[in-house]
Design a protein around this nucleic acid. Sequence first.
DNA 1: GCAAATTCCTAAGTCGTTTAGGTTCTGGGA
DNA 2: TCCCAGAACCTAAACGACTTAGGAATTTGC
Lengths: 191, 191
Amino acid sequence: MKRPGVTAERLTRTAAELADEIGFDNVTVTALARSFGVKEASLYSHIRNMRDLRVKVALFALAELADAAADALAGRSGKDALVAFADAYRDYARRHPGRYAASRFSLDPQTAAASAAVRHVEMTRAILRGYRIPEADHIDAIRLLGSTFHGFVSLEAAEAFRHSSDARGTDASWSRILDVLHTALTDWPPA
Amino acid sequence: MKRPGVTAERLTRTAAELADEIGFDNVTVTALARSFGVKEASLYSHIRNMRDLRVKVALFALAELADAAADALAGRSGKDALVAFADAYRDYARRHPGRYAASRFSLDPQTAAASAAVRHVEMTRAILRGYRIPEADHIDAIRLLGSTFHGFVSLEAAEAFRHSSDARGTDASWSRILDVLHTALTDWPPA
DNA sequence: GCAAATTCCTAAGTCGTTTAGGTTCTGGGA
DNA sequence: TCCCAGAACCTAAACGACTTAGGAATTTGC
């Protein structure tokens, strides 16, 4: 009777996949144990508790997303970089809604500081260097981009754009918004 | 032995208050029943189920937020209106984090169409009329503002800005972002 | 081939959601 | 006033999710 071979890593991966299928919040010990053909209690040899697992999935998703963004960014600059970065972000969220939700899981300070979230900020900062924005304003610009990307993507995921009076697709709005952001960064208003 | 006098309305209000204290996701039948001095099962005379209650709280929050925004908007126009509207949004989210989270609860199409969410869109559209933006682009601008506001506010709630290398407060970034949005709307790039 | 460490199990307790069905309170008509 | 219909509340119980304790089985390394 061979053992299923559960490990913390496989648990994290499977939880991430499950999250994409049924939603991050619906990933449960029961469902996870079932997909390994194992009893619930057995999982606790590998994870401390459910929160611990969610953190692991969050870190996994953050790293994966950072990798995707880095790939998209490679060799690009200026508006090209901005769009590629933004698209990588949105594509990931649409391809992996559960993992994206996981990446939004609120981490405690030290965990966050040691996570790939740092790379996200660094990449955003790299994009900003393609524009003439005072160093002191970078933090504001980073927050602007982060807010807009995350806001759009999460509203899109929640289908909050579904009932706009206008039947226009979200793709068109997205590229328009990137145009606007590019212009805004280009003509960054002085303090 | 006087009866507690539970009603759907009081349940909704209490759930909203509770959400602000302990978080929208942590509002449970048990906690709610306890705060009314009543058994769990008794709540089911007033609501169909937990999801039903969450929807009620979402509608309540959406309406309350729309009222606050409308107040803020009264008598203002141009950038003044934009900033007042945005501030109303952010203030509400900070004063009532649980209700704000509730207002993000994904509603089904018909419920959403009958909700105060419609007023939110209308108010945003009203603000846009203060700028020279082609009617056809309004939907994009609405989505831009909605994304940025929601994105900022939710990242702020998740304390995602906490560990930015820069120790700068979020207030400064917020007002800067509003400046940038104002400029972007003013110099709306042609298609 | 054995001992230790690991993996997995059973059993059980807690908490949250929900239903079924019974009891008690309340208001309005006879 | 009395009563009775319907509303408000209850007990009991099932189910699912999370978690711990302690034991059995399997794998690993010597």
